[in-house]
Every structure is written in C-alpha cells, then in structure tokens.
C-alpha cells in the first residue's frame, strides 16, 4: 500500500506477529526470511516508485536483536546496499518500542563499518 510518497511494510500484518531468530535454520519467521522474502522486494518496489519505505515495527510480540540485525544489517552485508543510501531510503515506525529505531540504525552503521 502506498501513502503519498511512502511505501509501508508492516512486520506484524505482512510477515508475522512473532518474529523469530536470525537465520532460517534456527527457527521460523527469521530475520533472514523477512529480509529475503519481504524487505528486499518492498525496497525494489519503493525504489521503482521513488518512494521511501516505512517499516512499521509495532504490533508484534517482540523482537530478538539478531532478527533486526540480520534483517536490516543484512541489507548492507548480504544485499550490497550501502548504509548511506539506506538512510535516504528507509524510515521506521516503532511507537511501542521507540529505542528499536536507534538500535536498527546502529546495526546498519556497524554492518557498513565491518563489511
């Protein structure tokens, strides 16, 4: 769904209310699965439309940090998107756990630094 110049990806309604571990091998609803099967596709759609992608983190049972690191840090490490262009492209909404937004930007920055 698109709102003005934003494409929205809601983790709870489009992926799972119970996000899980880092890798698919570790359990269901992993960060790897989210990145590969949902996030990358949405980024491509948003890029085509010249939209920003708003990732809505609210409504879930809670996140493992490895899930977030693999999903968003993995964009830099594994999908080859540099952290500067992600800063232009991505936005986050987390009213329930606002500190997650800072955490995610840290993961993206660290992934860029240790690539």
């Amino acid at each position: 769904m698109s709102v003005s110049n934003r494409t929205i990806l809601s983790v709870a309604s489009e992926f799972s209310v119970t996000p899980g571990p880092r890798f698919r091998t570790e359990g269901r609803f992993s960060g790897e699965e989210f990145r590969e099967d949902f996030l990358v596709g949405k980024i491509q759609v948003a890029t085509k439309k010249k939209d920003r992608l708003l990732v809505d983190l609210d409504g879930t049972a809670g996140y493992a940090t490895s899930f977030l690191e693999e999903a968003f840090g993995g964009l830099v490490r594994k999908e080859g998107i540099n952290s500067e262009s992600l800063q232009k492209m991505l936005e986050f909404k987390s009213e329930e756990e606002p500190y997650l937004i800072d955490d995610i930007w840290t993961y993206i920055k660290d992934a860029g630094a240790f690539k």
Binding site: T18, E26, G27, A61, G62, Y63, T65, S66, F67, E96
Partner: peptide, 15 residues
C-alpha cells in the same frame, strides 16, 4: 497483554 521485553529476552536465550 504483550510483554515485548520478556519475548525479546526469551528469544535471545533460545538463540
């Protein structure tokens, strides 16, 4: 209710 801190801690421990 949802207790995201507990969920997060349990996921870290399982991992």
């Amino acid at each position: 209710r949802r207790c995201q801190g507990v969920q997060s801690a349990m996921l870290e421990l399982m991992l």
